[in-house]
Amino acid sequence: MFEIRSRTGRIFLQIFATVLLIPFAFPLVVMVKGAFAGEGLGNFQAVLRVPGFGRFFVNSLIIAAAVIVLVYVVTMMAAFGFAKLHIRFREVYFWLLLACLTLPEVVLLAPLFATDTKLGLYDTYWAVILPLAALQVPFAVLLTRNFINSLPDELFEAARVDGANSYRGFIYLVIPLTRPIGAAVLIFTLVAAWNDYLFPLVFLQSPDLQTITLVPQFFVGEFSNDQTKILASAVITAIPEIVAYLSLQRLFERGLSAGAIK
């Protein structure tokens, strides 16, 4: 954006950016430093040695993957419908959906529990997957609708003239063309699903179903609170998300720039 031609100008800008970055980097440094304090790598070994750690990791993966798939499918369909198909009272439906963004999780727990037990979902993955997905869909639709809006109508009209129905339009146009915004939906959904603590805590009680966010509990007790291992588990827990972000970063940014939220 800025055009800096002079050398001193560029250096000044670089220094300015670096100074501005310090408050962002500082807590990360504190975290990593803390994770290595005391027993050093031993902290990480202790975390990995928590009985069932592998199981927890896999559970988190299953839940995150299922939430992502569910959110992705539902969102793509809805965004396509909102953006390119005919819906009477379209904006009413859209706002009904957006209003869900305002809901704090507190409000969901009670009714969910009542329903879960009735349907036999309590203590199954579904008890966590469904509410997590429900909470993610509104934001994801908001992002994706704008993205699909920006795809030229002519594409879809041409397809229709060629005899393709909505379903084929969806499969052959929407899915491939929305890969960038799909990456953004994936990242945001992954973060929400992977980091969630509340739903697994309340709705999953078998040790075999516990998720990785509950691992710090092994080091937090009423009368002992093992800071170094909590931080080490924080670092380990964050790794998959950081890897996912880094590997999808370019697609992610492209998706947001075409859709952006308006």
Partner: peptide
């Protein structure tokens, strides 16, 4: 018509 397409999202959320 687009209603069937947005139905899953509406039901879920």
């Amino acid at each position: 018509p687009g209603l069937p397409w947005i139905l899953p999202a509406l039901v879920l959320s």
